[in-house]
């Protein structure tokens, strides 16, 4: 019953360690899911679409876990266009040497790692705003789709400020104003206060979605670079409660000041 949590705990022993959660209607059948003759979810059924013809992104999703550890997992060595200081800092952080300086180690969630947590998130589309409810940290993002512009001089936050719009069948989310102390991945790739994230959500069929994530940060990287992260729909389940700071014992064992 708790396989998801147990696997997650093992995989992420180094970071994001908190007390995971409990069963909330773990086996309630998700309505509206196409099913095969034996009642199993048909995850290769066509992408559902809303009344406007656009893909619906609603559902509980989980990202391939490798991108949390290494956002550049699919890139060749040398393909990440670091500025010299960024490469130096990345190398200093590798192998956990500065584990304590990752805000997530102090139970502070942040973008873009939030999307890549080993716990699912739920997308709920509403008029003017799309919510992402994250099991990890029991927290949320609001992505505004009411046409507002990104703020000009945002106060930096851990999640940043996000607006979304459709480009064909891609839902494109632009985010700025992210605190520069967040890490792009557990390996420790840095960014600056100039970070502009572009998430391109592409739902290919009922059960599969990609996020093409572009890191546009001229202070830390010499040019924008893009990774493709794959997600799968998790049917017939529900988010659990995850409280990072509860009985947290990990931070004291991490390296760094």
């Amino acid at each position: 019953m708790f396989t998801r949590v147990m696997i997650a705990s093992v995989l992420f022993a180094a970071l994001f360690k908190g007390t995971p959660a409990s069963a909330q209607w773990f086996k309630v059948m998700t309505p509206g899911i196409p099913r095969t003759a034996d009642g199993k979810p048909n995850l290769s059924a066509p992408t559902p679409r809303g009344p406007d013809g656009k893909p619906s992104l609603n559902g509980i999703w989980q990202m391939n876990g490798k991108y949390l550890q290494n956002i550049a997992a699919d890139m060749k060595p040398g393909d990440v266009p670091y500025q010299p200081w960024a490469e130096q800092l990345f190398k200093a952080r590798q192998n956990g040497a500065l584990g304590k300086t990752d805000p997530a180690a102090r139970c502070i969630p942040g973008m873009p790692k939030l999307d890549a947590l080993p716990y699912p998130f739920k997308i709920i589309e509403t008029p003017g705003m799309v919510m992402m409810l994250f099991e990890g940290f029991t927290t949320f993002r609001q992505i505004f789709t009411d046409g507002r512009e990104l703020p000009k001089d945002p106060n930096p936050t851990w999640f940043g400020y996000s607006v979304g719009k459709w480009e064909g069948d891609d839902w494109v989310v632009n985010t700025i104003g992210i605190r520069e102390s967040t890490w792009l991945d557990n390996a420790g790739r840095p960014h600056s206060d100039a970070l502009h994230l572009i998430e391109r959500f592409q739902r290919h069929d009922f059960g599969h979605m990609d996020i093409r994530l572009t890191i546009d940060d001229p202070k830390a990287y010499t040019k924008p670079w893009t990774v493709k992260e794959d997600l799968r729909l998790i049917p017939d389940t529900e988010l659990l409660e995850y409280v990072c700071v509860e009985n947290e014992k990990d931070y004291g064992h991490l390296a760094g000041k």
């Binding site: 505004f144 507002r148 703020p151 945002p154 106060n155 930096p156 936050t157 400020y161 104003g177």
Partner: peptide
């Protein structure tokens, strides 16, 4: 606490 996210919209 936090920061101003479209506080006057």
């Amino acid at each position: 606490a936090a920061a101003a996210q479209w506080l006057n919209l």
